[in-house]
Amino acid sequence: MSGLKIAVCIKPVPSPDQYHRVGIDPRTKTLVREGIPTVINPLDKNALEAALQIREKCGGTVAAISMAPPAAEENLREALAMGADEAYLLSDRAFAGSDTLATSMVLAAAVKKLGPVDLVLTGNESADGGTAQVSAQLGEWLGYPHLMHACGLEVMEDGFIRVDTAREDCRVAYRVKLPAVVSVVRTINKPRFTSLMGVIAAGKKPLSVWTSGDLPVDENFLGLEGSPTKAGDIYQPDLSRRCELLEGSAGEIAGAVLQKLRAAGLQL
């Protein structure tokens, strides 16, 4: 099979290595994430890498799609620099406050508008919200078969792909009929770095912005109003402990540690 049309969903997230800087404003009770740069969700890079590898093997095109505020254009440019052929930013105030069902509805609308797409890839979960719900729900909105936890992906003959999935105690290989939605885990590949050539090329690649009016959205499930779940209070759990120092030589420390273990009820 040749020439797959692949769409990759990309979520811009606050950089995951800086979540210790996330906090809550005690006065306004809102989230504080100032100064934390926005990056492509790490697993979405694995999804993009998987798409690029398929394109290199079988031909076709790779489109990057993101439902996000206008600033996400920068993240989509990075996806183009990595090698995506075209990018679509789904941006509209009407999308604000979307939960996973509403988000996946908009993404599905964009995939439909793209025309006959063979494969939709996403990261298994995002680093910030981490629900791991969007890919399956996207598959349901599209009416495509869908699988999660993909650690291997291979195009088979006659419009099928082989998807290897990682579960707690086993690996399960599936044959899935295209079009399909698959979400990938970290072990599937190592995402490539962007080259300077890639960055230069990205400037010339098409990046379109679609608003709600451009898409076949379901008004009943649009944005905050259309989201079944509503966010309530947020808070920061206090997990601090007494943090007492154990000192001395390695041997003395070991003795002290074992004493604590016995005091905690261990039979040593």
Partner: peptide, 23 residues
């Protein structure tokens, strides 16, 4: 929220069009 449950739950929620809170 095992591998199995985290795949089944959002699928069911999308089918019955209701909310789902993860993890």
């Amino acid at each position: 929220a095992t591998a199995w449950g985290s795949e089944v739950a959002p699928t069911v929620a999308a089918r019955v069009k209701t909310g789902l809170a993860a993890h």
